[in-house]
Amino acid sequence: MALGRSGLSLVVMLAVVASSCQTEDKRPLPHYTSNGRGLARTNAAEDKSNRHFIEFRSRYALTYGHTYVIFGRTDKNGNMINPEVAGLAPASADAAPYIIGHFVPVPATTGATDGDLEEQYRSASWRVMLTDEEYSDTVAYIRKLQATSHLWDASIYNCNAFVANIARHMGYNPPSIWLRPQQFITTLRETNAG
Score class of each variant (00 low, 15 high):
R5N: 13
S6Q: 09
L8E: 15
S9N: 15
M13Y: 05
A15I: 00
A18G: 03
A18N: 01
S19N: 02
S19P: 02
S19V: 02
E24C: 06
E24K: 13
E24G: 01
R27L: 15
P28Y: 08
H31I: 10
T33C: 02
N35G: 04
G38W: 03
L39Q: 11
T42G: 05
N43W: 00
H52T: 00
H52W: 00
E55D: 02
S58P: 01
R59P: 00
T67V: 14
T67N: 11
Y68C: 12
F71V: 03
G72A: 11
K76S: 15
M80K: 06
P83R: 10
A89E: 11
P90K: 04
A91K: 10
A91H: 04
A91W: 00
A96H: 01
I99G: 08
I100K: 09
G101T: 05
G101Q: 09
H102K: 05
H102W: 04
F103S: 10
P105Y: 00
G111P: 11
A112Q: 14
T113W: 01
T113V: 13
D114H: 09
E118R: 15
R122V: 15
S125G: 12
S125D: 02
R127S: 03
M129K: 10
T131M: 06
Y135V: 06
A140T: 03
I142H: 01
A147H: 13
T148G: 12
S149P: 12
H150D: 00
S155Y: 00
I156Q: 01
Y157S: 15
N160R: 07
A164Q: 05
N165R: 12
M170F: 07
G171F: 04
G171N: 07
Y172N: 06
Y172W: 14
N173L: 14
F184I: 14
F184A: 13
F184H: 06
T186G: 04
T186H: 13
T186R: 14
T186C: 08
T187G: 06
R189E: 00
R189S: 08
A193M: 04
